[in-house]
Design a protein around this nucleic acid. Structure first.
Length: 740
DNA sequence: GGGTTGCCCGTTTTT
DNA sequence: CGGGCAACCC
């Protein structure tokens, strides 16, 4: 593709970096960030200042100048999406050799290290990665075995304590008194140890282990560390403000020899402290790497003057920033709309109003995929989804109900996991009695006993266990099927294998005969899973993927409007952004304020900043004074963040009297002292008449891949009821239908 | 061992 | 309000 790889003499190019073809479009600061290849570099990169471009160009530059071969470069990101994007962009620039660059998420890197040095890390190479569900289940069991009342102390709480320890690179033995937690009368540390022991017995790791175990491996095996130090001559880190202590330590070890580490980040976009991220990492970079070059990228290429002004004004309310001033690259002063603000009576009015605006923008030429609705909590997506269904607008909810967290998907994955590895006790327990095979607690404890005695997994312990003849018989059939499928893994592709496995095990029939409303949707989801499986060559590859994907990684297809959380929106950009639910208590979220006080407030404010800076042309902020929470009407004041936006960059579009003074530029009646709040009766003081817009879908002809042609009869929040020509009435999710 | 009932709690954000 | 789950019954 490009010929600069063929240059065998590095110095021919490195002497004249300006000639490097991708450098032309960069501004001087970006150029400096690309060409300062030696020594530690911190790039403070504000929103929309082209950091991905800098990272990819820097990699291309390192390769083009012959300073490194692709495999000598390590580039880490936080999300699969970010790494995919970087990989794509890099491939566009330099062609296929992009694939040899070690580019991926921190966690994927951890998986690779642990697979390569499994024995040294105390694992077998086919270890499994646990999901949150498995983790909580394990902890619950440990707690109950130790006589803890899990109503009093929740496994989820213990899990988060353990995760925070792991985030800080602490193994159970490393926890000092100062680090200890009072949870469960101080027994948390002991449970952590038990939990780790269980994981090792199961040959399993959790997310935290993917960082913690490599860290320990590097510390205890200097030869391994040194191999990696020699291998990775250049390290690049995206979203450095989101790194936790474990990641910081890993990077420090890896970069120790070469010192060629380039971290890109923005302290104003640090929104993951609750997950263990330490903004400190970015703040103390220079302390840790005294030779560091610090480069600031402040020219924003994304947003209009008004949007940037509003965002900058907002974030200036935070103390302790590294202080960047974003400047618009587009110097047309005052170009574009001010940030729009509109208040509504309640959540569904808000959804209706926002979607009206979406449609207006669409008529003015913006495609749905160039717009996004951003919310603070995933529960807020509901009213929007209902409205979108009513209006017949194609949409995609990211982070709503999570595909890989659904029961049927987890079951199907557990079946595959067991076929792949009969030692996977968690998978075994999940599906051994699904569908019902008459395997109950009695049989399970017999298996557990035999497993303990013979040091086998539950599955492999079946022949040794004392079982009733009927149970023995069903289990023999079950093991027969799993073993047979295992033998087929080499000859059969994942998709047909899964089809046969789920069919022959009776799993599909379980849902087919289930008469609940969701059953059909579940079967649809399994079909969707087949589609995903079709893209993998081995089950192993799929399982690894399924363990590490998140909903933020989901792709949209076609022209869809996305609805997602503010957290999930980081790194993305849209022409028009709709920021909903800007109310005290919801945003900033009360829980954050209660738990983390002013620190928490600042993080919420950064989240607002992230949201605003996603917008290229227009931003619409909205709030609802009444909202139904847990089936109860609650009222709220507009968010203090609205007040913090500079007057000259906002415009209030509120059309109704929300009970404050009728004339207000912003929300002049908002108050923050909770003691001041007027407690109202738990219902809205005004509820507008409900007028459903006539659906655009009813009566439409549609096509479904398996059911054929049909006509839409009815719409429900869960999907559509369609009368199929051949099969009659069925409930299906709209995403499986095509309009004809 | 399987099914039903009734209670409790949740909604912060995710690799 | 609704899902998950423990306790209770067949």
């Amino acid at each position: 593709m490009s010929d600069f790889f063929d240059l065998s003499e590095p110095e021919t190019v490195s002497e004249k970096p300006q000639d490097f073809p991708f450098m032309r479009d960069l501004n001087p600061e970006q150029r400096q960030a690309v060409t300062t290849t030696e020594g530690p570099v911190l790039v403070l990169s504000g929103a929309g200042t082209g950091k991905t471009r800098v990272l990819t160009t820097r990699i291309a530059y390192l390769l083009a100048t012959g300073q490194a071969s692709p495999w000598q470069i390590l580039a880490v990101t936080f999300t699969n999406k970010a790494s995919r994007e970087m990989k794509d962009r890099l491939e566009q620039m330099i062609g296929l050799s992009a694939r040899s660059v070690n580019l991926g998420t921190f966690h994927a890197f951890g998986v690779r290290v642990l697979s390569r040095y499994a024995a040294e890390a105390g694992l077998k190479p086919d270890f499994i990665v646990l999901n949150t569900d498995d983790q909580e289940r394990l902890l619950k069991k440990i707690m109950q075995e130790n006589g803890i009342d899990i109503k009093q102390y929740s496994p989820a709480a213990l899990l988060s304590i353990i995760e925070r320890w792991k985030d800080r690179g602490l193994s159970p033995t490393a926890i000092t008194k100062a680090e200890d937690s009072p949870f469960c009368d101080g027994r948390a540390k002991g449970f952590y140890q038990l939990y780790q022991d269980r994981l090792r017995t199961l040959n399993a790791v959790d997310f935290g282990d993917l960082l913690l175990l490599p860290l320990e491996l590097f510390r205890t095996h200097p030869n391994v560390l040194s191999a990696y130090q020699n291998k990775f001559r250049y390290i690049l880190v995206d979203e450095y403000q989101d790194t936790n202590v474990a990641q910081y330590l890993l990077l420090r070890l890896l970069a120790h020899k070469s010192q060629n580490i380039c971290c890109v980040g923005d302290d104003d976009q640090s929104i993951y402290s609750w997950r263990g991220a330490e903004v400190e990492n970015i703040l103390k970079f220079q302390e840790v790497y005294p030779a560091a070059t610090i480069i600031r990228l402040e020219r924003n290429y994304r947003s209009t003057d008004h949007i940037l002004g509003a965002a900058s004004g907002l974030i200036s309310n935070n103390a302790g920033r590294l202080g960047k001033t974003l400047k618009v690259a587009d110097t047309r002063d005052g170009f574009g709309d001010r940030v729009h603000i509109e208040g509504y009576w309640n959540g569904s009015e808000e959804a209706k109003g926002v979607i009206e605006k979406v449609l207006r923008e669409q008529r003015q030429g913006h495609t749905l995929s160039q717009m996004a609705i951003l919310v603070r909590t995933s529960a807020q997506t509901r009213p929007f989804e209902e409205q979108l269904i009513k209006e017949g607008i194609p949409y995609k909810i990211i982070g709503g109900f999570k595909f890989y967290k659904r029961e049927e998907i987890r079951d199907a994955v557990a079946y595959l996991r067991l076929v792949l590895n009969t030692g996977d006790d968690l998978a075994f327990l999940r599906i051994v009695n699904k569908p019902r095979r008459g395997i109950g607690d009695g049989a399970i404890s017999a298996l557990e006993q035999a497993a303990k005695e013979h040091h086998l997994s539950l599955f492999d312990a079946i022949p040794w266990a004392e079982l009733r003849p009927s149970v023995r018989k069903t289990l023999d059939t079950f093991t027969g099927l799993i073993t047979m499928m295992r033998d087929k893994t080499n000859t059969l592709d994942p998709e047909p294998l899964a089809r046969q496995l789920l069919e022959d095990s009776g799993y599909l029939n379980m849902w087919r005969t289930d008469k609940s409303v969701e059953a059909e949707g579940r079967l649809e989801n399994i079909k969707e899973l087949y589609n995903v499986l079709g893209e993998f060559e081995t089950i192993n590859a799929f399982i690894e993927y399924a363990a590490l994907v998140t909903d933020a990684d989901e792709k949209t297809d076609g022209d869809q409007l996305v609805v997602m959380t503010l957290h999930a929106s980081k790194g993305l950009e849209f022409d028009c952004v709709f920021l909903a639910g800007w109310e005290e208590g919801l945003f900033p979220h009360q829980k954050t304020l209660d738990e983390s006080g002013s620190q928490g407030l600042e993080e919420e404010r950064r989240l607002a900043y992230v949201g605003l800076t996603r917008a290229k042309e227009k931003a619409f902020i909205s709030y609802a004074t009444n909202r139904k929470i847990y089936g109860q009407w609650e009222n709220a004041l507009s968010s203090r963040f609205i007040d913090e936006l500079p007057d000259e960059h906002v415009q209030n579009d509120t059309q109704i009297n929300l009970g404050g003074s009728p004339f207000w530029n912003k929300n002049t009646f908002s108050r923050y002292d909770k003691s001041d709040w007027v407690t109202q009766e738990s219902k809205p003081f005004y509820q507008p008449a409900y007028t459903a817009p006539k659906s655009k879908r009813i009566g439409k002809r549609v096509y479904h891949e398996s059911f054929g042609y049909g006509t839409v009869i009815k719409e429900t929040p869960n999907g559509l009821e369609v009368h199929f020509d051949d099969l009659g009435l069925k409930k299906v999710q709209s995403r499986f239908l095509a309009e004809v």
